[in-house]
Amino acid sequence: MAQPALSTAIDFSLPPVLHNERGEVRTVGVEIEFVGPSAEKTVQALQEALGGRLIEEDPHAFVLKESAIGDLTVELDSRILHPGKQAGTQRGVLPKIAALFGFAASYLVPCELVTAPTPIDRLEELNRILAILRALGAKGTQDAPFYAFGLHFNPEIPRQDAATVTAFMKSFALLNPWLRREASPDATRNLLGFADPFPAEYVRKIASPDYQPDIATFIDDYLSHNPTRNRDLDLLPLLHHFDAGRVRAVLPNEKINGRPTFHYRLPDARVSDPGWSIAPDWNRWVCVERLAADREKLDAVGSAYLAFEGEDKSWANVVEQVVRS
C-alpha cells in the first residue's frame, strides 16, 4: 500500500497581540526581490492567477489592484528608473530615457514585489505568490551569487506608544544574534554589506530594565546610534510616523515613508526553491513579538545580557533557549 505523502507546509504563527488599538486584526506587508521575468510579465502572470485590475505607472512599475490576495506592486528596484515618482518630475525626455535604461537594466536590477498590508491571520495566502514566481522562472539568492535579494516584513505595531516600541526594540536587539544565525545570511550578502547589526553600545543602553524612555527620548537615542536605514530592523519609517520633524532634523534627505509599522529586513529570498516559504522567517519574527509582550521575561533577558561576557555566537545559544521555552 502506498504511503501517504508527508505535508511539507509550514504553519504561520500568530503573534500574542493579534489586534491593533482599533480592535482590527493587525496587518503586515511583504516585500520579495527577484530577477528573471520583467516587472510587466510578472504582474501579468499575477493578474491571470489572482484576478484584479492592472495599472501601469511607468514601463517598469505596475500595480495590481483588488486581486484575490489584495493589492500588489511590481517594479524594478531602482529609484532612477521611476522618475515619475519623484517630486517635481515632469513628463518628457527624462521618463523616456529612464524607460529605455530600464529595459537594459532589467537584466541586472532586481524586481521588487510588494504586497499591500495583509491581515496577519491571512499571511499564508501570500505563499501563492511564490508558486507564480517559480512558474515564471524567477531566480533568487541561490541562483545569482553576485546579487543580493531580500525578503522584508512590515508588521503593524500593535500599540502606538513609547512602551511598545521600546519593548519591541529591546526584544529584537537581544534576539538578533540568534535571528541572524537562523536566517543563514548568504555569503554574498555579507560581502555586499546587507545590514549592520545594532551597535553594541546601543544594545547595552536599551537592554537595561530601567530603560523606559518617552517617545522623544527613544527617537533621539535611536538616531544618535542609528542614523541609517542599514539595520536588520529599520525603525526609521515608524519613528517618522511618530515624529517626522525629529527624524528629518537628523536625516533631511533620506528616503523615508512614515508608517505605523516595523521594517524587518531579511537577507535571503530563495524564490526558485520549491521548498522555500516565507513562514519560517515570519515565525522567528513572532518570537520577537512574544518576548516583547512578556515584560518580566524581557527584563530578565536584558539583565542576563548585561551580565554576559561571551561573544554574540555564544549569546545566540543562550537566547535560543529563551525562544524555545
Rank of each mutant, 00 (worst) to 15 (best):
D121L: 02
S277R: 10
D210H: 12
A5G: 06
K313P: 00
N176L: 14
P267I: 00
D77K: 11
R246P: 09
S314C: 06
V35T: 13
I120Y: 11
A249N: 08
P95I: 00
P59S: 01
S78L: 13
S13Q: 11
A207Q: 07
T188K: 08
I215Y: 06
Y202W: 09
P252N: 06
L14D: 06
A304S: 15
H82G: 04
S7Y: 05
P158N: 00
E125M: 08
H263Q: 13
F153R: 01
D273E: 05
S224I: 01
I97W: 09
L133F: 10
G88Y: 03
A45K: 15
P145N: 08
E182G: 04
V109A: 04
M1I: 06
P16G: 05
N127S: 11
K170A: 07
T261F: 07
N257Q: 13
T217C: 06
S314D: 14
R53V: 10
A105V: 09
D268W: 11
I80H: 09
S272K: 07
D294E: 12
E309P: 08
Q212R: 15
R324Y: 10
E66V: 03
N127K: 08
R284N: 05
Q86F: 14
S184V: 11
S106D: 07
L14R: 09
N317I: 02
F198R: 07
N257V: 13
P252I: 06
E75Q: 14
V93C: 10
L251R: 12
V247A: 03
T261I: 06
Q90K: 13
R181N: 05
A116Q: 07
D273N: 14
S184M: 12
K255N: 12
Q44N: 13
R284P: 00
R259M: 04
P83N: 06
N283M: 05
D220A: 15
F101Q: 14
E309W: 05
I69C: 10
L175T: 08
L175G: 12
E24W: 11
R290P: 07
L306K: 02
K41F: 06
P209T: 00
G29P: 14
F12Y: 15
A207G: 09
P199F: 03
N257S: 14
R134K: 12
M1D: 04
W315M: 13
K255T: 03
L223P: 09
F62H: 02
N176P: 04
V322I: 15
G302I: 00
A105M: 15
I278F: 01
V17M: 01
S38V: 07
H241W: 15
F168R: 05
A39V: 06
L18H: 06
P260Y: 00
P4Q: 03
D234P: 04
H60A: 09
L46D: 05
Q90M: 11
M1V: 07
T164E: 15
P177N: 01
A2F: 10
L14A: 13
A45P: 11
A45H: 13
R324N: 11
C111V: 04
V288F: 03
L94W: 10
D299W: 09
C287E: 15
